[in-house]
């Protein structure tokens, strides 16, 4: 295992109710790089992401985060690892009993001893980065789907985690905002050396952000490499996928 490996999946297999979602998936993500998981809906991309953060335990295989096998950790240790990761859920999963700003401030309140003013300042900063500086006091229900997604991203970034897991950052966003989000992710990677794991089916976006791309089909990792590598792939599914505009 390389010392600079941030995340490594080793022969991960997972089935739900007899249906195999992940089948012997293995990959490795280097520190400070962006890894894009591509694939059609329901092929196991989100499940892979949840394995990395420990929300789902594999039936077989291991998940290493910063060198530790998180499948073997007890909850307190797991929490320590999780604090080093940010997670944007597919549908944002904002806590709808508290305001947008408090959603972003939530991880800070939980895991830092900062004074209230400082926490608010930082939360506002993160919201500003995703273009929601004016919506601190709004309740999540008052936001549109795209705005919720961006607020979710702000929350995921709140603790400036070394690893950021992003599930469909651009779903439901207009092309301009999508571009802005991509820029934001690239900046994070460049400035803070954040490791990015991005699940998407927006190919242009993946091309822009991803250092390495992987395609999952039917729970099996069928291709992995740079965008250029995949463009050259002889596998018809991969080829078709890379040529699509990404909405499907």
């Amino acid at each position: 295992m390389r010392r600079d490996t941030a995340v490594r999946l080793e022969r991960v297999t997972k089935a739900f109710g007899g249906r195999r979602i992940l089948d012997d998936v293995s990959f490795e993500i280097a520190r400070g790089t962006a890894f894009c998981l591509l694939g059609r809906s329901g092929t196991g991309k989100s499940v892979t992401l949840k394995h990395i953060v420990g929300l789902i335990k594999p039936d077989r295989g291991s998940v290493y985060v910063e060198g530790e096998d998180i499948t073997a950790l007890e909850s307190r240790e797991l929490a320590r690892i999780r604090r080093r990761m940010g997670f944007l859920f597919q549908n944002a999963a904002l806590f709808d009993s508290i305001s947008v700003g408090e959603n972003v401030a939530f991880p800070l309140r939980r895991h830092t001893a900062l004074p209230d003013g400082e926490i608010r300042k930082r939360a506002l900063e993160k919201l500003d980065q995703v273009g929601l500086a004016d919506d601190y006091k709004k309740m999540p229900a008052a936001l549109s789907g795209g705005m919720r997604k961006r607020a979710g991203l702000a929350r995921a970034m709140a603790l400036d985690p070394p690893i950021l897991l992003v599930d469909e950052p651009s779903a439901g966003l207009d092309p301009i905002t999508t571009g802005e989000i991509d820029e934001l992710l690239l900046t994070l990677k460049k400035r803070a050396g954040t490791t990015l794991v991005v699940v998407t089916h927006n190919i242009p976006s993946a091309r822009r952000v991803g250092d390495e791309l992987a395609v999952i089909e039917g729970g099996i990792l069928i291709a992995k490499g740079t965008a250029a590598d995949l463009d050259r792939s002889s596998e018809p599914t991969v080829h078709d996928f890379m040529q699509s505009s990404g909405a499907g």
Binding site: R82, F95, H111, R155
Partner: peptide, 18 residues
């Protein structure tokens, strides 16, 4: 129930909250 269905509970867990 709503928090479970909308993954808010997972979000809590992912934020390292029991």
């Amino acid at each position: 129930g709503a928090m479970r269905v909308t993954e808010q509970i997972d979000a809590l867990e992912a934020t390292a909250v029991d």
